[in-house]
Design a binder for these strands. Structure first.
Lengths: 162, 162
DNA sequence: GTCGTATCGTTGTGCGTGCAACCAGCATGT
DNA sequence: ACATGCTGGTTGCACGCACAACGATACGAC
């Protein structure tokens, strides 16, 4: 009778594991939603757009190849094409041909984009601090950083490439 | 001249903070993709579908109200309606009217769904262990569990409720 | 030079999701 | 009993994304 509905408990997660795992899923979901809403509210900017601007700002000459940008922000090439379309339409970035490779395109920050980012960055980083970073001690952050690296290249990283 | 392109560093994240924060974003993305692919590969089941089956299996009588289920798996009500549609079409769950409240619907696990989950659970939990849990020590997991709680209810949790 | 293969970016298409609107049914007050 | 407001689930619609196919260009072998 005990074999009815919940056999196979042998592989289930312990409460400890469950808290750590599901906690991460929920925390990520909640954070992403909160930060995105915050950014949209304050600057009418989506999180994905913010990421593009940020990577561009931190790149040499404020420009990056579509390809590299796509893998930086974990988006498919086609997804990036459209995202760049939208941002270009808003005048925040522009496309620049690549002279070294005629197939290539650069996405390049415009002055408007630079300003937009400067403003958004303040909001966003404040949010990240308030909602995430402040919940950890420096030691914990240190630990996290290392653990993420283990997780990331443990998971094959087989995604991306394209 | 130093005022050219990257002023306002004052609010930027320290390398420590950056590693912890971006690491989480990437880790989550990589994990989600890997686990989803794995589940789809092995059992032709999406992660969101798996979550539904799992919550149902763990619920009393293997059934839950649409509403509760939606907030459990962090999905909008409309999103859940369609997800349940798909799962019902595959015969893994069924809709059952609620006698206490004529508006209500239960999503209920079918025998086929129960079997599907039993198989998928093994795969999925093995994946979670291998890709995530094993990268942390028990102490670290303990710390994480607590931290996630702080993060989650710090972030307002203003999402959900539909 | 030319051919075959790989890579870059774009486009067509389908899918999953959220939001808003909607209807049916509950709950409360009078 | 009836009116009002609220809740649960579904539907129309728009959006963002991935996948596959495509044209253009690069790179290498011959």
């Amino acid at each position: 009778m005990a074999t009815m509905s919940s056999v196979g408990q042998s592989h289930l997660l312990s409460p400890l594991e469950l808290r750590a795992w599901r906690g991460m899923l929920r925390a990520h979901a909640v954070l992403a939603k909160a930060l995105d809403a915050q950014l949209e509210e304050a600057h009418n900017l989506q999180l994905s757009s913010y990421e593009v601007l940020m990577y561009l700002a931190d790149a040499e000459h404020e420009r990056m190849r579509m390809c590299d940008l796509a893998s930086s922000i974990l988006l498919s090439r086609s997804g990036l094409t459209r995202l760049v379309d939208r941002l270009a339409r808003e005048g925040l970035i522009e496309r620049v041909a690549c002279d070294a490779d005629a197939r290539g395109q650069f996405a390049k920050l415009t002055p408007a984009g630079r300003e937009k980012l400067a403003a958004a960055r303040i909001t966003h980083l404040a949010g990240v601090r308030a909602l995430f970073l402040e919940r950890f001690t420096p030691e914990e952050l240190e630990m996290l950083g290392g653990a993420w690296d283990r997780v990331i290249d443990g998971a094959g990283y087989s995604c991306c490439k394209t």
